[in-house]
Design a protein around this nucleic acid. Structure first.
Lengths: 194, 194
DNA sequence: GTTCTTCTGGACTTGCTAGTCCACAATTTG
DNA sequence: CAAATTGTGGACTAGCAAGTCCAGAAGAAC
C-alpha cells in the first residue's frame, strides 16, 4: 500500500487519536465509530489504512504507545551514571505517572494484551529494552565504583522493572503512588548498599 | 431474594465456572452464553441470580477471586516470623504463579478493572489486606531483632506488594518469572540488611 | 395435597458494531 | 489535461450478545 504525505498524516492522526482514547477506555469498549468521531475520519478510511480492521489498528496503537513509554523517561534513562541521575529518574517517573493517573499508556497496553495476542510481543520487547537500559545504568555505576561489583546487573534491572511495573499497576487501581515510591526507594537503597 | 440450598449451589456454580473461564479470556470477550455453556445454565438463571446482569456477575466473580489470592498464600503469609518462613513464602508464590502462567486470578481481576468500575474497589481492598499481612511479618521480624528496627514496615510492605504485583504482571506478558524472582530476592536481601 | 415460592429453559427482541461496498473527491503522474 | 492512483464519506449488511419474558418444573410450606 502506497501512502502519500496526506495519507501518512491521516494514518498518524488515527493512531494518535485512538491511542489517547484508549488510555481512558477499555479496549473492548472502544468502537471504531468512537475512533472515527475522535479523529474525524470515516469507517472507509480506517479500513483503508488498517486492512486488518480493529485488531490491526490496536496493534499499531500498541507499537506507538510502546515507543512513548521509554522516550518519556529520557534523558534520564540513558544516563544513569550518578546518584543524582538515578534519583532524578525516580522523580521523573513518579511525577509522570502521578500526573497521568489512570490515563496511562503502559497500563492501557497491558489491558489490550488479553484482547489481541500480538500486543504481548510488543510488551515483551518493551520490557526487554527497558531492562537493558537499567542494566546499563547499573553496570556504569559499577564501573565507576559507586555500586558494589558483586551485584548481578541483570537481576537488579529485572527487579527494577518488576517494581516499577507493579507500582504503576497499583497506582492505576488505587490512585495512590505510595507503592510505586516505596518500591523505587527500596531498590535505590539496595543499590546504594544500605 | 431468597435462595434455597439448590439455588445457592447453582449461583455458586455460575460464579466458579465464570471465574475459571475469565482467567483464560478477556472479560470483554466472555459472553453470558459462554458462561451458560460452561456452567450448564440458561440465561434465565443467570439473570435470576444476578439481576444486574453481566456487571453484577463480574463483580461477584471479582470478589470470589480476590478471596482466593490471599488464602492461596497461606499458611505462609500469616506466619512471616523467621527467615525460613519468608523464603518458603517466596517459593510458594513463585511456584504458584509459574504453574498458573496466564490463568492468573489476580491478573484477570486487573483486566476486569477497566471494564467494570466496582472491581477497582475490590482490588484496592485486596492490596490493602495483602500489605497489612506483609507489614505484620516485618514488624514481627523486628520484634525478634532479626530485621533492623529503623526500617519503615509500611513502606517495606508497600514495596513488596508492588514488586510481586509487577513480577506477576510481567510473567503474564512474557511467560518468564525472572522479574518476579529477582524482585522478590532483592527485597528479601534488603530485608536481611545486605 | 394444594398452594405458594423458587428454579429452569429457551425463544424473542433490541441495539450495537465490525466489516463491506461503492460512489465520488483529491492528488499524483506522464 | 487525461489517466491512474490514492483518499474520503457514509449507507448498508450481517451477526452477535445483553437483556426480557413467560411458561412450566421442582421444591417448600402447612
Amino acid at each position: 500500500m502506497k501512502l502519500t504525505p496526506k495519507g501518512q498524516a491521516t494514518r498518524q492522526r488515527i493512531i494518535e487519536g485512538a491511542a489517547e482514547y484508549l488510555r481512558g477506555n477499555a479496549p473492548g469498549a472502544v468502537t471504531l465509530d468512537d475512533v472515527g468521531a475522535v479523529t474525524r475520519t470515516s469507517k472507509g478510511q480506517i479500513f483503508h489504512y488498517f486492512p486488518d480492521g480493529k485488531e490491526g489498528l490496536l496493534l499499531a496503537v500498541a507499537r506507538h504507545e510502546a515507543g512513548g513509554v521509554l522516550t518519556d523517561q529520557e534523558p534520564h534513562l540513558s544516563a544513569l551514571d550518578s546518584w543524582e541521575s538515578w534519583t532524578a529518574w525516580r522523580d521523573a517517573v513518579v511525577a509522570r505517572y502521578q500526573a497521568q493517573g489512570r490515563h496511562c499508556p503502559l497500563g492501557a497496553l497491558m489491558d489490550q494484551m488479553s484482547s489481541s495476542p500480538g500486543t504481548a510481543e510488543v510488551i515483551t520487547e518493551l520490557l526487554a529494552q527497558w531492562q537493558r537500559a537499567i542494566r546499563a545504568g547499573v553496570v556504569s555505576m559499577q564501573a565507576s565504583g559507586q555500586v558494589r561489583a558483586e551485584l548481578d546487573p541483570d537481576r537488579t534491572a529485572a527487579a527494577f522493572v518488576a517494581g516499577i511495573q507493579g507500582g504503576v499497576q497499583v497506582l492505576r487501581a488505587t490512585g495512590r503512588s505510595d507503592q510505586l515510591e516505596a518500591a523505587f526507594d527500596l531498590m535505590l537503597d539496595y543499590l546504594r548498599g544500605a
